Amino acid sequence: MKSIRSLAHAVALASLMTTASFAAHAAELPLGSEALQDHISTQVLAVDPGNYRVTIEGPNNSQVPIQLSDQAKDLHNLKVGDKVDITVTRAVAYVLNTSEGGAPKVTDEAGTVRATKDNPNPGGEAFRQVRVTSKITAIDLDAHEVTLLPPQGKVKVVKVEDPELQARMKNLKVGQTVDVVYTEVLTVKTSRP
């Protein structure tokens, strides 16, 4: 079983979700990405649907109370002893926008997908995507550095370490934007033993 910190993070993410859709830029070039996944299997110890509270088994047989939002519509179907599988996937992608003239900004989008009405077991999926756009203000090919202006306005110099990306730096232009896209997906599945 994963740590209580991972479990708390998964629950916090679930409670922050609101409905939205993903956006995409028309001319994006991926520069790199990385992903990480945590999985927790546990069981339900107590259910309080009136107060939107569920207690699940944590590490070392501890009890972990979870306060859900009123979006948890199917809690009445959850029973003590039900199995709960929680998967959290986090990904970071670095993307170059090939057009010029973009402005530094941050966008935050999220959404939820619930189990179908034909599935009596509560669960679903929630996602959140934060896109941080920084503008290229200078390029130093000899030092393999790109100077970026992020939304908070404090210029940041990034050293390009990857030889393949260093070779492609000659195609960069001042005024283009680089997006760092953080994505988190939380999937919760329940089942009866």
Rank of each mutant, 00 (worst) to 15 (best):
T183G: 03
S21K: 13
T18P: 00
R168I: 05
V47S: 05
A138H: 13
K156L: 11
S21W: 02
I66Y: 11
V54H: 06
S33K: 14
R5C: 04
K105F: 03
V155Q: 12
K159C: 00
G124H: 04
P30I: 10
G111Q: 11
T19Q: 14
A91C: 03
A35P: 00
Q37C: 06
A46G: 05
L75Y: 02
T89C: 01
H76G: 01
S134K: 07
R53N: 07
V160F: 05
E109K: 08
L148T: 06
D82V: 06
V185L: 13
T42M: 12
P59Q: 14
K154Y: 04
V95W: 01
Q71P: 00
V160Q: 02
H144T: 11
Q37F: 00
A93K: 10
V158A: 06
R53Y: 00
L16I: 04
V158C: 02
E161L: 12
K2L: 12
D142K: 15
G175K: 09
R192K: 10
S62E: 12
A8P: 00
Q63N: 15
V185F: 01
R5I: 12
A14G: 14
L36R: 15
E34A: 13
A23E: 14
N77C: 01
A110R: 15
D82F: 14
R168A: 13
L172A: 11
S62W: 01
F22P: 03
L96Q: 12
P122Q: 09
L78Y: 07
D82L: 07
K73L: 13
S69Y: 04
A167N: 08
V80F: 05
S69Q: 13
I86L: 14
L29I: 13
S3I: 03
V64G: 01
T147K: 11
G50L: 14
K83W: 00
S6C: 09
R5W: 06
N61F: 12
P122G: 05
K156W: 01
N97C: 02
A24R: 14
N61L: 15
V174L: 09
L13R: 08
K173M: 09
R192T: 11
V180T: 14
A110W: 09
N61E: 14
V88R: 07
E34G: 13
L16P: 00
S99Q: 15
D82T: 06
A24E: 14
K189W: 01
E161C: 02
N97F: 01
G50E: 11
A24Y: 05
V174K: 15
K170D: 04
L75M: 11
E109P: 00
L36F: 11
D38N: 10
T107Y: 09
Q67G: 09
D108Y: 08
A20K: 07
A10S: 12
V64T: 10
V44E: 03
L172D: 03
K159H: 13
E100M: 10
V157G: 02
G111L: 14
E109T: 09
V181C: 01
V180C: 01
S3V: 03
V64C: 05
R5G: 08
V188S: 04
D179N: 12
E184W: 07
V188Y: 03
L172T: 07
M17N: 02
S6Q: 12
L141R: 15
D48G: 06
V157Q: 13
V64A: 07
V80Q: 11
V157I: 15
V188P: 02
V178S: 01
G101E: 08
T183M: 07
H76D: 08
V47C: 07
A10F: 03
V54M: 10
G175H: 07
H9S: 10
